[in-house]
Design a protein around this nucleic acid. Structure first.
Length: 531
RNA sequence: GGCUCCGUAGCCAAGUGGCUAAGGCAGCGGAUUGCAAAUCCGCCAUCGUCGGUUCGACUCCGACCGGAGCCUCCA
């Protein structure tokens, strides 16, 4: 398909179906392309999920949050999306880790999958439709390999099966790589392969390893084949979006393309989308990767990388530990504040900054609550409903919404989207100030305020933000006790203020601030907020 | 050595061949407040360096410097 043709047909067919024109950056072409789906109005999307051998860390959360946002935005805009994220539950690393823990591969995989799912839920990633596990698709995988052998693209070798890259005319097209320039897996498997760049589709079992029966003997699938096989089984031979971290482009996605397109004579996915990797703030190197000196080959390299290696030794903590210090919503804001293809600086500093930034939204929601309405129960309108209703929110809100949508239509630019939302917050606060809505609201002003809040609800909803009311801090009976106490303290301070005893009033406020509680004096009375 | 990508204010981070280079954090000044907090208003960058193309570049090209990812396993 040529770009020119696709562009014209794309915008035309989207418009005909009442869908907006969206551009998507495609790793395959290295440029933005108009978004045209295989089936009009429908999107098939696949994201490479985790290998479940250790608790997931922040790096594992990037892709899910980004593609969750993309799915939300596409559905908001009128597409129907089917999103698949696989779980790799058979792999060398799982086998090694389970052996060292004295448990089984299945048991370890189940535990780590639960950990992963818990983290996703905390982050509001709830829109995954299918989560296939490799071990539940062994038959699918074997069939796929048999077809590849039958077509001459793969060969069995002493119980292993390899993909023959020399048979694939355009091997390397995703990463602009030649067969000669790739080393492939070395070690003991090297002499069973015809070319170094050939990769395993099926690995024969060593004694004691988990294995499945196959036409080539007992063994297990290679790393890349499960994605090809499960993609076809669930989304068909040609679907729309295939995503993953930038570190997966080679060899994983290159090899998926080789497997699927050799067999099917059609593109595997129209758009290949890759998210940037996490980097520990202030230090070079991504979070959670292997140490960079693994491939050091020259003397100069070794000395240049020494500093890097030390800084990387911190590693990445399990995400669930991080959640004890930071709300998941803060993480989500941080991830979406950077364009998805850029690396993200991650650490306590950036998290703290995101947290402070995000509170501007929540303060507005609290303000809205004081005016008498709950933000969290407002309906998230879809794009058409929003188009029809936005005028009531006034000119500024209308143009900010248009800016937000234009940014998201342009390769899901959530960074501009969030920036625009900050503008919305300022516009609404100003509106509330100017119309003295907190004192005596005119019905028309109140109506416009609600319309504006509905716009913020609509747009933040597409990012998966502010969908749930934040936790209030203390819980249950404690909360009630604290509330009573605060009521008393505030009452005493109010009397001091009435008597112009400001030293006493200020003492109360200062001490509370030190204790992490800030007081806000307003016309209607004093409010307290736990920081 | 090969293949990608990046270098924008104190920090984080968008963006564009030519209108005032988004937004956030921090900071400063003002309105408001008993004083604060919150909110609002205002201030705070010439875009790594050096060349080139162009009427005009931060935006295109080249070189250089610095940083990141990939080239067996990694989200």
């Amino acid at each position: 398909m040529t770009d020119e043709k696709t562009a014209v047909q794309g915008s035309a067919s989207n418009a005909a179906a009442g869908l907006p024109a969206i551009d998507v950056y495609n790793t395959l072409s290295k440029k933005k392309e108009p978004f045209v789906t295989v089936r009009p109005g429908h999107v098939g999307m696949y994201l490479c999920g985790p290998t479940v051998y250790k608790p997931s860390h922040i790096g594992h959360m990037v892709g899910p949050v980004i593609f969750d946002t993309i799915k939300r935005y596409l559905e908001y805009s009128g597409w129907q999306v089917k999103w698949v994220v696989n779980i790799t539950d058979v792999d060398d690393k799982i086998i090694a880790e389970s052996a060292s823990r004295g448990t089984t591969m299945a048991q370890l995989a189940a535990e780590m999958t639960a950990d992963y799912l818990g983290n996703l839920a905390a982050l509001g990633v709830e829109s995954i439709d299918v989560m296939p596990k490799a071990t539940e698709h062994i038959d699918t995988i074997i069939t796929f390999i048999e077809e590849l052998i039958a077509k001459g693209f793969a060969y069995a070798s002493e119980g292993d099966v390899y993909f023959d890259v020399t048979k694939d005319a355009d091997y390397g097209k995703l990463t602009n790589r030649s067969i000669e320039s790739t080393q492939g897996e070395g070690g003991s498997t090297a002499d069973r392969k015809r070319s170094a760049a050939d990769f395993a589709l099926w690995k024969r079992a060593k004694t004691g390893e988990p294995s499945w029966e196959s036409p080539w003997g007992a063994g297990r699938p290679g790393w890349h084949i499960e994605c090809s096989a499960m993609c076809r089984a669930i989304l068909g031979p040609h679907f729309d979006i295939h995503g993953g971290g930038l570190d997966l482009v080679f060899p994983h996605h290159e090899n998926e393309i080789a497997q699927s397109e050799s067999l099917h004579d059609c593109p595997m996915a129209t758009y290949w989308m890759h998210n940037g990797l996490m980097q520990a703030a202030g230090t070079p190197g991504k979070v959670g990767g292997r140490s960079r000196d693994a491939g050091a080959s020259t003397v100069e390299d070794a000395s240049a990388q020494a500093a890097t290696k030390i800084s990387k030794s911190t590693g990445a903590e399990p995400f669930r530990n991080l959640l004890q210090r930071h709300r998941a919503e803060v993480v989500r804001v941080l991830l979406l504040s950077t364009h998805y293809r850029s690396p993200i600086h991650f650490g306590e500093e950036p998290l703290g900054e995101s947290s402070r930034a995000m509170e501007a939204f929540e303060r507005l929601f609290v303000r809205y609550q004081r005016i008498g309405s709950s933000f969290y129960t407002l309906p998230c309108r879809n794009r058409r409903e929003g188009d029809a209703a936005v005028a009531a929110a006034g000119e500024e809100a209308t143009s900010l919404r248009a800016k937000f949508l234009a940014a998201m239509d342009d390769d899901f630019n959530t960074a501009i989207g969030i920036a625009t939302l900050f503008d919305c917050v300022r516009v609404v606060n100003k509106f509330v100030d100017q119309h003295s809505i907190e004192k005596n609201a005119a019905p028309e002003a109140l109506a416009q305020l609600h319309a504006m809040m509905l716009v913020i609800r609509e747009l933040t909803g597409t990012l998966g933000l502010f969908l749930k009311e934040p936790p209030t801090g203390a819980s249950g009976e404690n909360e009630a006790t604290v509330a009573k106490l605060m009521e008393l303290v505030i009452e005493i301070r109010a009397r001091a203020r009435a008597a112009k005893d400001f030293p006493t009033a200020d003492l109360v406020r200062t001490k509370l601030t030190e204790a992490g509680i800030s007081l806000e004096d307003r016309a209607e009375g004093t409010q307290w907020v736990k920081k």
